[in-house]
Amino acid sequence: MSEEPRIVDGSRVLGVVPGKPAVGEEKIPARQRLVFVWPHLLVRHAVASLGVLLFVLAVSLVFDAPLREIANPMSTPNPEKAPWYFVGLQELLSHLHPMIAGVLLPGLIVIGLVALPYIDRNPQKRARYRKVAVWTFTLFLVAWLAATIIGFAFRGPDWTWVWPWNGWYGEL
């Protein structure tokens, strides 16, 4: 044995033992292995960030923010609409008592959202194992979207139904 000792990482290798690694088989699937946030995530975030910024700048070059005539408390426009994210509530307001649509419902939505993780104790994360939660949330989401779209695009003077192609009253 006149062979020179093999050096790996500053240590002398005395022998190689065949078989499985002493620490056992790798149990963590590839998608769950940890990777460094820099650069892997931060590069993606930078691209997403710049993409959005570019989009906003492009939109701002093409479309001007609206500015109507000066505020006049004596002249009420018809229809008068809330900002788009509240127009769903305004739509409900035309069907329900203001106490329900204007106070109770928004209050319940916020409380319901806050309480969600404490009500839904099902540990499953995949949609197919949590049908009740997914269906409830989706139903709520669709109803809210529908009310918002109707209020925004389908309501005209005196909150009557107007098809968007017959008259446009939505404003951003």
Partner: peptide
């Protein structure tokens, strides 16, 4: 967003905030 909506003080701003805040009375 809602507080910023009023600041231009045009008809759009004034009446959108009027509608939005009228709910507070209930």
């Amino acid at each position: 967003s809602f507080t910023g909506y009023l600041l231009p003080w045009d008809q759009l701003a004034y009446w959108a905030i009027t509608v939005g805040t009228s709910l507070a009375a209930y």
